[in-house]
Amino acid sequence: MDVFMKGLSKAKEGVVAAAEKTKQGVAEAAGKTKEGVLYVGSKTKEGVVHGVATVAEKTKEQVTNVGGAVVTGVTAVAQKTVEGAGSIAAATGFVKKDQLGKNEEGAPQEGILEDMPVDPDNEAYEMPSEEGYQDYEPEA
């Protein structure tokens, strides 16, 4: 019985440690998101679009440190934060509304985080759909 109880105690310690790591990862992701939003706020009209992409990228980098179902929630929060940063930029006159959601080359930025393969159960990952990809044929 002692062996059984000791095993359960060790398992509990492992769960607590994993929860603490997840909590730490979420806190880091939130900190990076805040950094990115402050970065966007300090940019001029020309830099705002690039700044919004930076927020998304920093958040995406930190999301990889967070495991399990938390990833889905962090990704949703990050996307809403990026959308909010863009709205703030438009409201303050840093950028025109028609410039939001495009990178410096004018290509749409939507789907940055949505296409990231995420499995809350950590069982399997699927690649994003290939609808947006084109076949590449090298020139002879």
Rank of each mutant, 00 (worst) to 15 (best):
G14N: 07
D115N: 05
Q79Y: 12
E110W: 04
I112T: 07
V118M: 08
V118G: 09
T72A: 14
T64H: 11
K58T: 07
D2F: 15
T75E: 03
K34A: 10
T22G: 05
H50K: 11
M1R: 00
Y125Q: 13
K23D: 00
E131R: 07
V66W: 15
T72S: 11
I88K: 03
E57P: 02
V95S: 10
M116Y: 09
K12H: 11
K102Q: 02
V55A: 05
K45G: 03
E20Q: 12
D119C: 12
K32Y: 12
M127N: 10
T22C: 08
A107K: 10
Q134R: 13
V63I: 12
D115E: 12
F94V: 03
E110I: 05
A124V: 10
G132F: 14
N122K: 14
K10M: 10
G68V: 12
V82I: 05
A124G: 09
E28A: 06
G84K: 12
K96S: 13
P120F: 07
E139T: 03
T54G: 07
K43M: 15
E114D: 15
E13M: 12
L113M: 05
G68I: 15
G84W: 09
A19F: 15
G132E: 11
T22E: 00
P108K: 15
S9C: 09
A53F: 12
D119Q: 14
T54N: 11
D2H: 08
V49A: 11
D119Y: 03
Q99D: 10
G84D: 03
A27C: 12
A11V: 15
A56L: 11
V118F: 11
T22I: 14
E126K: 09
V48C: 05
V55Q: 01
H50F: 13
A78R: 07
V63A: 04
A89T: 07
P138K: 05
S42R: 08
T72H: 15
A11P: 00
M5Y: 01
A89R: 07
A78I: 13
G86F: 14
G84F: 14
G51Q: 08
A69P: 02
Q24T: 14
E130M: 08
G106N: 05
A90Q: 14
T75K: 12
N65W: 10
K10R: 13
K60Q: 06
K21F: 15
K60L: 10
Q109D: 11
D98A: 04
G132P: 04
E137K: 03
Q134T: 03
G86P: 05
Y125M: 03
T72C: 13
G67K: 05
N122L: 05
G14V: 14
A29C: 09
A17L: 06
D2E: 01
I112W: 07
M1L: 00
V74T: 02
N65L: 08
M5C: 01
K97T: 10
A78V: 12
V55D: 00
E114W: 12
V74P: 01
E20A: 09
E131C: 10
L38W: 06
P138S: 09
G132H: 05
K6G: 01
V3P: 00
P120T: 09
K45A: 12
L100E: 08
Q99I: 11
P128D: 11
V70T: 02
V3L: 05
V70E: 01
A85R: 04
E131F: 10
V16H: 07
T75F: 15
A17G: 04
Q79T: 06
K34F: 14
V70S: 01
D135A: 05
L113W: 12
G7S: 15
A11D: 01
E137M: 05
E35P: 01
E46R: 07
G93I: 11
E28M: 08
V40F: 10
L8M: 08
A76V: 10
G111Q: 13
E35H: 08
K58N: 05
K96P: 04
E57K: 09
E104C: 02
M1D: 00
A85W: 14
T22K: 00
T44C: 12
Q79M: 10
G14K: 12
V66S: 02
Q62G: 04
T59V: 11
D98V: 03
G67L: 12
V49W: 13
G51T: 11
E61R: 06
Q62K: 07
F4Q: 00
M127S: 05
V82N: 03
V77D: 01
L8D: 00
M127G: 04
G36Y: 12
K12S: 04
T54V: 14
V3G: 01
F94Y: 06
T22S: 06
A89V: 13
G68S: 03
K102C: 08
M127L: 11
A17V: 09
A91W: 12
E35S: 07
G31T: 08
K60H: 04
G51Y: 11
V40K: 01
E114V: 13
I112N: 09
V16F: 14
K45N: 01
Q109K: 15
K97W: 15
Q62P: 02
T75C: 10
K32Q: 03
E46A: 10
K43R: 08
V37H: 00
K6F: 04
K32W: 15
I112M: 06
G14S: 14
K34Q: 01
V40E: 00
K80H: 08
V70L: 14
I88P: 02
Q24E: 06
K60W: 09
G51F: 11
S87W: 14
G36D: 02
E20K: 03
G36V: 09
T81C: 09
L8Q: 00
E46D: 12
Y39T: 06
G25H: 15
Q62A: 07
V48A: 04
G25W: 06
A30R: 02
K34I: 06
K45F: 14
T54W: 13
K96R: 07
T22M: 11
T75M: 10
Y133C: 11
G31D: 07
E46V: 07
K12C: 13
E20S: 03
P128A: 10
G31Y: 13
G132D: 14
V95H: 11
S42L: 11
E130C: 09
T92P: 03
T22V: 08
V16M: 15
P117I: 05
V74Y: 14
A124D: 14
G73H: 13
Q109V: 07
K97G: 12
K23S: 04
D98I: 03
A30H: 02
T59M: 03
K97F: 14
V70G: 01
N103D: 13
A140F: 12
A17Y: 03
A140C: 11
D98R: 10
E137A: 07
A19C: 05
E13Q: 06
E20M: 09
M127I: 12
A29P: 00
A140E: 09
T72P: 02
G93V: 04
E123S: 11
P108V: 08
G67D: 01
G67T: 11
Q99F: 13
K96L: 11
V66T: 03
V52G: 01
P138Y: 12
A89K: 02
G36F: 04
A124I: 02
E20P: 00
V55H: 01
S129T: 08
E114A: 03
E104L: 06
L38H: 03
E105S: 08
K43W: 14
D2C: 03
K45I: 14
P128N: 10
V52T: 01
E137D: 06
E35I: 14
Y39Q: 05
A69E: 02
V37D: 00
K43A: 08
E123W: 10
G41D: 00
P128R: 10
M5S: 03
A140W: 11
E28P: 01
V74R: 01
A91C: 11
K10E: 01
K102W: 15
A30M: 15
D115H: 11
S87Q: 15
G36N: 15
K21Q: 08
V70R: 02
G73R: 06
N103W: 13
A29K: 04
V37M: 08
H50Y: 10
V16N: 06
V71E: 02
K21Y: 12
G47W: 08
K80L: 15
V71M: 14
G25M: 10
V26I: 15
V26Q: 00
T54D: 01
S9W: 15
P117R: 04
L8V: 04
E46G: 07
T72G: 11
T81P: 02
